[in-house]
Nucleic acid binder design. Structure first.
Lengths: 217, 217
DNA sequence: CCCCGATCGTGACAAATGTCACTGCCCTAG
DNA sequence: CTAGGGCAGTGACATTTGTCACGATCGGGG
């Protein structure tokens, strides 16, 4: 409602037009709180919000915000997928915010041309600054995550191994996985075994857990 | 900051003194956003915040707030434990807010004399009203969760079975669990097996997962 | 007193899971 | 063409995990 985007007289910057922001997070409470927090900033105006990935895309197309703040964990389409679709359709910039900052996810996010990546452990004061940076065309990657992602090696797993691991996260017998993948049970065991070796795990569940934490699945 | 607790001239209620609120959540960003959101309410004043359970207890003792808003998932001491300690030391009321609203957890929360229980999917507008209700001595339990908790049966598992299941959530071999519990491996398998039967699961991981979702472990 | 049920605990057996050595296929380099 | 390396797929074997039938211990009646 506060359409007075030119309100920011207090800001010393040159062309201090208000930043038009879209917020997407599936938890209603968090979303509302973020809206409140960021609307307090004189140079930021929240123009749209959504509670899932596809709604975020629609809203972005409808409102053409300057910056989109997307939660990574969302139903329908996760933050990265939503970011890719939004950036394909609208000239805007995306900041991903996430609870579990897994290295591989950062990699995928950057591949999708995301401009900012921050964990939910970021101090609240900093978020507004990140949004300003990104709006100005700069990038911001949380240093902690960046360091982890750089030291973390690239995924050593083959496609099939990843398929098998993906299904191992839920409680599924090897048989069921095999059916799902149209493979012989032995083959699946083999993939899981080699994945376990590569990941130095002693059960497929541990391997799947580890791969997930790295953001590989 | 804004110590003008008596500001609420707009509020029609009789003795509209400001509600003094403590907020605890381990995610800095969320905590900051909640503070911003609730400080917008004219009759609410955030007087303390903490990022873990024990800090929350200390802050509560130091500031004697009217209401404490505690996240369930926190390091050091979870929301329920913190609630119990706070209520033992300070005359105040507690609202638990959580991401995964598991039935058994509600049960434990109520046993700890918590006054409010809301999921993070609650609309932001509603939270302030819950806090007012609780401050006025009433209770508020999210209807959805309450219904689930009422239909959900009580935990059918024995103590030892719960012990074994607890350890089954992490990736541990039966051997290791047995050592940890000072038992023979066979015994552990037995407990797990009976738990699996009771929970209609086909692996201990599935059983552990199910027990966790019910809030039994 | 003894029996009874409930709970904890153990070991033998069957089924699943993980390991290994092997074959076939495709692609690339020589 | 063909040799070789990497990946997909298979079946035989050892280990782990889950099932079962059976003791031991402990209280509370009859």
């Amino acid at each position: 409602m506060s359409s007075g985007g030119a309100a920011g007289g207090a800001v010393g910057e040159g062309a201090a037009r208000g930043i038009r922001l879209l917020i997407a997070d599936d938890e209603h409470l968090i979303r509302g709180a973020l809206v409140a927090l960021l609307n307090l900033e004189p140079d930021i105006e929240v123009v749209a919000s959504a509670d899932n990935g596809v709604a975020a895309v629609e809203q972005a197309v409808a409102t053409s915000p300057d910056v989109c703040l997307l939660d990574l964990e969302m139903p329908e389409a996760d933050g990265i997928e939503a970011a890719a679709r939004i950036l394909a359709a609208v000239p805007t910039r995306v900041v991903i915010v996430t609870r579990h900052a897994r290295p591989g996810v950062l990699r995928r996010a950057l591949a999708s041309k995301v401009s900012g990546f921050v964990p939910k452990s970021t101090p609240a004061e900093e978020l507004a600054q990140v949004i300003r940076d990104v709006a100005a065309g700069r990038r911001y990657i949380d240093p902690e995550i960046a360091a982890t992602a750089l030291t973390a090696e690239r995924c050593p797993l083959t496609d099939r191994e990843l398929d098998a691991l993906r299904h191992s996260r839920s409680t599924m017998s090897v048989q069921q996985i095999a059916e799902r993948l149209h493979l012989a049970p032995g083959t699946v065991r083999n993939y899981l075994s080699s994945a376990m070796t590569k990941l130095d795990a002693s059960s497929r569940h541990e391997a799947a857990e580890r791969a997930w934490q790295q953001g590989w699945i």
